[in-house]
């Protein structure tokens, strides 16, 4: 199945939204002083809205500290949302996250070493959601199901009774994926699933994820900082900077026609084999500002190479500008009225 086919399918069944996020804000309070009072907020996620469709892969891309992981954690209710709404199909889940939704939304973590309990056997690790969420009691039944799951991620029967430290990084990540699949979820949130792995192992995991997505019709929320990975596996992409989206669109939109200056810089910063792309590289100056005291107006303006051409970057909040039906950016208009 080619990606283009899949994409058209997604646009056909627009209604088939699995997760809807509307105006989500997640702030962490900073405690300080002698009596641990609130002295400020870190705006980890600041007014973000998106939809996740059935069977698609949505990439959340950004540098470390831009809040992409927080979005995942907020959807899973590991972190309370400050304001905004999250829906699973038609049910609101941000204030009422029951065990039923836990079954439907699962997560794969970044570091396979520490996301498996070192003192537990694999069968118990993968069996834990079965035991709690599916209410399976019989040991035999659980072992049978775990074995099935292990086989879907290409692992063998003798791995059942081993401990995590006996596996390589790639195998551990397969186990984590198997655990996420245990309760037949509809959405899997993948938090940098391959960044701790080697390139060749990463390729295995990415292939596996693609297969599983087709097999189980999964919606994947793929959180990563690696643009090449999301280009390979994703259908749509959201680029984040300091808790806000700066650009969203299909993979083709964003990778072939990047419009926001940050996306452009991000794309050109990738090390490549191709010497031609190297010559017109945009190297951003400075570093990501702190999310406690973000800059005024557009958060990106102190580093923006195109600020000269725009109006009101340091005063106004950026506006959502539609470039096509699927492609949007949050930016300021050009001074000379040029269109994007």
């Amino acid at each position: 199945m080619t990606v283009i086919n899949e994409k058209t399918k997604i646009s056909e069944r627009k209604k088939d939204v699995v997760i809807t996020v509307r105006n989500l804000k997640t702030y962490y309070t900073i405690l300080g002083g002698l009596f641990q009072r609130k002295i400020g907020y870190v705006k980890a996620v600041d007014d973000v809205s998106f939809d996740l469709y059935r069977g698609e892969t949505l990439g959340l891309v950004g540098e470390s500290g831009c809040g992409k992981t927080t979005i995942g954690n907020t959807i899973l209710n590991l972190v309370p949302a400050t304001s905004g709404e999250i829906y699973f199909e038609d049910d609101r889940i941000d204030n009422n996250f029951t065990q039923d939704f836990r079954k439907k939304i699962q997560m794969v973590f970044q570091d396979p070493d520490s996301s498996l309990n070192p003192r537990w056997k694999i069968v118990n690790i993968i069996g834990e959601p079965l035991r709690i969420l599916e209410g399976m009691k019989k040991r035999r039944e659980i072992r049978k199901r775990v074995l099935e799951l292990l086989e879907t991620v290409s692992m063998k029967v003798e791995h059942l009774d081993r401990y995590p430290h006996e596996f390589s990084g790639g195998q551990k990540q397969r186990i984590v994926i198997a655990r996420a699949l245990a309760c037949n979820p509809e959405v899997i949130i993948l938090d940098e699933p391959t960044s701790a792995l080697d390139v060749s192992v990463q390729a295995q995991i990415l292939n596996l994820l693609k297969d599983l997505q087709i097999q189980f019709n999964l919606a994947l929320l793929f959180i990563t900082h690696d643009l090449s990975v999301i280009q390979h596996i994703g259908n749509r992409i959201e680029v984040m900077y300091l808790g806000k989206f700066v650009e969203e669109g299909t993979i083709d939109d964003v990778f072939y026609h990047p419009t926001h200056p940050y996306t452009k810089a991000l794309l050109s910063a990738r090390p490549t084999f191709d010497p031609t792309t190297r010559s017109n590289r945009i190297i951003l100056e400075g570093e990501v500002p702190s999310a406690i005291n973000p800059p005024s107006g557009c958060y990106f303006h102190p580093r923006c190479p195109e600020m000269e051409d725009r109006i009101g970057c340091n005063i106004e909040e950026p506006k959502k500008i539609s470039i096509s039906e699927t492609h949007h950016i949050w930016c300021q208009p050009f001074k000379n009225g040029k269109k994007f």
């Binding site: 899973l76 836990r102 570091d111 498996l116 003192r119 537990w120 834990e128 709690i132 245990a182």
Partner: peptide, 26 residues
């Protein structure tokens, strides 16, 4: 703070189960 505790939360384990079955052995 470790991810396996988060994973247990995602798997729906109650606080007591996380405390005494997941964290304590470690």
């Amino acid at each position: 703070e470790l991810p396996y505790v988060q994973a247990a939360k995602v798997a729906g384990a109650s606080n007591w189960r996380i405390m005494f079955k997941h964290i304590l052995p470690n």
